[in-house]
Amino acid sequence: MKNTLWKALGILLLAYVFAITFLVPLGPGLLEFQNVERVISSSTENRSVPEYQLIGYGTHWDDDPDALQVFVKSKSQLAALEVIRVDDANHATVGLTLPYSLPAKSWNVLINHPIDGTLLLENGLFLSDRFIDAQATWPAPSFVEHPGNLGFHFPYQPRIIETIRNLMLHVPLWFTMFLLMGIGFVSSIKLLSNPRNQLDDQRAEASVQVGLWFGVLGLLTGSLWARFTWGAWWVDDPQLNGALVTVLVYSGYMVLRQAVEDERLRSRLSAVYNLFAFVILVILLMVLPRFSESLHPGKGGNPGFNTYDLNSALRAVFYPAIIGWMLLGIWMYLVTLRMKRVNRQIELLP
């Protein structure tokens, strides 16, 4: 009973993870703020202003078009822009009502809306034809950060957008591989300290075999993600190189096992190699990426996601995902191990 309980738990957790991961909508965000090459005369100021189009993703501007406010911000200087019209839920036309002399060229675009809340487009506006005067200031308009009024959703992140869902697959798959390779590492140490126990050899082999599957899946999901966010299926990056090398090193482990005939010798040689492989794995995936520049999230420090990138909605799925994948991995490992033992017993039959 106890034995089936954790398996059922793993399956249920993963079912929950899949359902939430793919069915919860993404929160709103700003895609672009672009000049539409048109000049209109503003109603408030009696002169012509350039017209910009603001494009949102998953926003609800037409539900309450009058409440949409657009601001630009550079350091502490804030300015309100005039919303000329709201075209639909995620297109709005904005007049660039800014004075000629500005404190900076590059501006963040901010919007406020009762449903979507406060959204930010970093460096959304770049003005090269204005006079730059670092001292230029004007009275700031009233601006209150708005939490928004939306149901459960995943946070919008620029460039990642909908692929944030991959977080629940890619990262836990690698964690599970770590766990399995760790089991292999411990089994190998145990085997070397007590070479008579061939069960430890089977443990090491089974865990590496299953762990390799998780590693390959981690590579594939990572490759998909790289294609979307970085534009290439593979990029030269310490974290990615480390991941590939890890999979290659453990493939070498499987090759080594095939190469040795004698069982005792095989268990010992592969255990020694496995210890090397695990040390290299730790160096490659946990040490080196912290010391080199990386495109991978959390560059120059933590090779995972930064904590502030994980909001409560993501956490509600991410932690169950880790546990679910790990339980599945352990289950697969146990089945593989039993298969090996039965196979061996059959071989030993008279």
Partner: peptide, 23 residues
Amino acid sequence: AIASRAGAGFGLTAVLGLPLIIP
């Protein structure tokens, strides 16, 4: 040493060594 103990010769050294040498 591992490869020679396995009795598989140089081919195995290359297979085991190339991935480990990449770092």
